[in-house]
Amino acid sequence: MKTEWLETLPEQCPPEDAELCNGSYYRIANGNPVDSADFFSQRKLQPDKVFKGSDINECVARTISLFSDRKEAERRLKLPKIRNASIALVELEPKDGMIKKTFGIAHDSWWRTIEFDVSQAKIV
């Protein structure tokens, strides 16, 4: 069965070292309750932006940032740009896509499939 990604991914994306989703994660969300737009990649939100950073390529630009540790997500809420956001608990299963640890201990990059059910994510 072919995986249907939420958005078009470049060649060799997700990378070989990404794993099937399985577990609980935290997502910084603007909606309360959350909606699908709270689970869009930076590329989908900003299609013309040039992302800078040594570890940021087009594959990573098409991921959704998640945190494996709630305290790390809460720490990010201190940033002015997302100060008024909320934190959603997300339970991911293999059908929801692929995930890889990136950018620090508690940060994960998630490649979302169309199978992900947004309604199961709850503000905590």
Results as ranks from 00 to 15, higher is better:
M1C: 06
T3S: 07
T3P: 01
E4W: 02
E4P: 00
W5F: 15
L6I: 03
E7Y: 11
T8L: 12
T8A: 15
L9A: 08
L9T: 06
C13D: 07
P15K: 14
P15S: 14
E19A: 11
L20V: 08
L20D: 14
C21F: 14
N22D: 15
S24D: 04
S24F: 12
S24K: 15
S24T: 14
Y26P: 06
Y26L: 10
Y26E: 07
R27N: 09
I28Q: 03
I28W: 01
I28P: 03
A29P: 04
N30V: 01
G31F: 09
S36K: 11
A37H: 11
A37R: 15
A37P: 00
D38K: 06
D38R: 09
F40C: 10
F40G: 00
S41V: 11
S41I: 11
Q42L: 13
R43A: 14
R43W: 10
K44I: 04
K44G: 01
L45S: 09
P47K: 05
D48V: 02
D48K: 11
V50D: 10
V50M: 05
F51N: 03
K52Y: 11
K52G: 00
S54N: 05
D55A: 04
I56N: 00
I56K: 02
I56T: 13
E58Q: 09
E58A: 00
C59H: 03
A61K: 06
R62P: 00
T63D: 02
F67D: 08
S68M: 01
S68E: 03
D69L: 05
D69E: 11
R70E: 15
K71Y: 03
K71D: 13
E72L: 04
E74C: 06
R76A: 10
R76C: 13
K78M: 07
L79A: 13
K81F: 10
K81C: 00
A85E: 00
S86K: 15
L89S: 14
L89Y: 08
V90A: 12
L92R: 12
L92P: 08
E93T: 14
E93F: 15
P94G: 12
P94S: 13
D96R: 02
M98H: 14
M98D: 06
I99L: 11
I99H: 10
K100F: 04
K100E: 03
K100R: 15
K101H: 12
T102W: 01
T102H: 01
T102F: 06
T102S: 03
F103R: 14
F103E: 06
I105D: 15
A106M: 01
H107T: 08
D108T: 13
S109H: 00
W110Y: 07
W111Q: 10
R112L: 13
T113C: 02
F116D: 02
D117R: 09
Q120F: 02
A121P: 03
K122A: 03
I123H: 01
V124H: 05
